[in-house]
Nucleic acid binder design. Sequence first.
DNA 1: CGGCGAGTTGAAGAGCTTCAAGCCTGGTGG
DNA 2: CCACCAGGCTTGAAGCTCTTCAACTCGCCG
Lengths: 243, 243
Amino acid sequence: MDALIRRLSFYSDLDDADRADLATLRGTIRNFRAHSEIITAGQEMDAVLVMREGWAARFKTLEDGRRQILNILLPGDIFDLQVLVAAEADHSVVTVTDGSLYAVAPAAVRKMLAGSGPLTMAFWWTQVQEEAFLREQIVRNGRQTAQERIGHLLLELHRRAQIVDQASADAMPLPLTQTQIADTLGLTPIHTNRVLRRLVRAGLIEMNRQWIRFLAPDRLAEMCDFDPGYFHLDAFRMRLARR
Amino acid sequence: MDALIRRLSFYSDLDDADRADLATLRGTIRNFRAHSEIITAGQEMDAVLVMREGWAARFKTLEDGRRQILNILLPGDIFDLQVLVAAEADHSVVTVTDGSLYAVAPAAVRKMLAGSGPLTMAFWWTQVQEEAFLREQIVRNGRQTAQERIGHLLLELHRRAQIVDQASADAMPLPLTQTQIADTLGLTPIHTNRVLRRLVRAGLIEMNRQWIRFLAPDRLAEMCDFDPGYFHLDAFRMRLARR
DNA sequence: CGGCGAGTTGAAGAGCTTCAAGCCTGGTGG
DNA sequence: CCACCAGGCTTGAAGCTCTTCAACTCGCCG
């Protein structure tokens, strides 16, 4: 549960008792291969799933096959806390890479959420953050140009990867295909490709099939109006300090 | 707290004790006029706000003034449950009409959430639903045409208004301006206008500045691939029955 | 070595935006 | 009481971003 501990610790200083509580939540580990559909919309859920290793993507498809990725899931991300109250999934999840996840019994999670300690608050936090990612996704796809969207998404993923120790200061693994990026940003793969090439030619990024390097992160951030305030990282630490 | 009770009751059968608990949550009533900014991004939050009467809209603006509405708030909607863990708002809220809201102390809400009764579950539910609305908004704006987006949004609002008794079977008050609809759907007001007129000419809807009537709801729903499954209404009732 | 998935590039076309102008309605003040 | 003004709605015309259709390349795995 390394990525999860790492992520929760980012918000809340967990002591040994908290870590022990977290251990009891662990549940079973399930491995998965790339491109497998872990959850299918309409399916009845029976466990809370937590990403352990690898990347995945929430998505919905329209009748005629158009696909929209809602959010990318990184290690440490929790999906379907909604299983606690909802019977069926309203969207699907597909894996991007090989990896593994924890499947936790809803009852254990519900018990943990009834508490009020640092662990509970940290969990709440991941949910608040997840919602902020969705909101940012709406702004990006609703009001930004293709170039801005791509830059913004890449910077968000980089920051999120850093939080769980999966990225260096100016580079990270990027296992997404250009089609997946396009489906995230409401674009066609063709246009996504053209814009990515343009960013490379402009000397802003460098990339291959598995990695991306940010050559001028500040210029990129300014170009696409990226302000990581919605991560609420500082705010939370301030609040902790205040208690 | 009529709309809130109405909404929570839709998911969970609240008995008198639950209603009494809810009453203690009531907090203070604040009135507002149309077009006032209730919450400004970056502002520190001190209360959980619940819509009582009137409509509002969450939104974010980019540096250069482009505006994106994230979600429309109807009576019974709860905003900023995130105040429980986050210090500052990451988006703004502006009112659409005159109205009023409840301001509830975070401590009271936190206590309520630590429970596990029908009231707590119903609150969780509103949050799950809210997240589903955000996801649907992403699909709409990412992969649907202007005409589909508009039809889909109108049908969603109608369904939500019905839940809190603010709409009849085929009509509802619609206080949004075309510019606000455009800002919700990532379109220009000009194009929004053109498409709305087209829907009217096609005999699908009838509207004026304050009202909309659905003349052929089924045809409209089919045209824009509207499936209210993401409201999770049935799923929840099933789960309740199962306990 | 053959084939498949992913990436790349070109050319034509559609949907939506931008710029521009006029209209309608409700509220305000002389 | 009515003229005026502002905000919202409506319509036209031109233009740009992104899409669609098409073809070709590259790298990898069987």
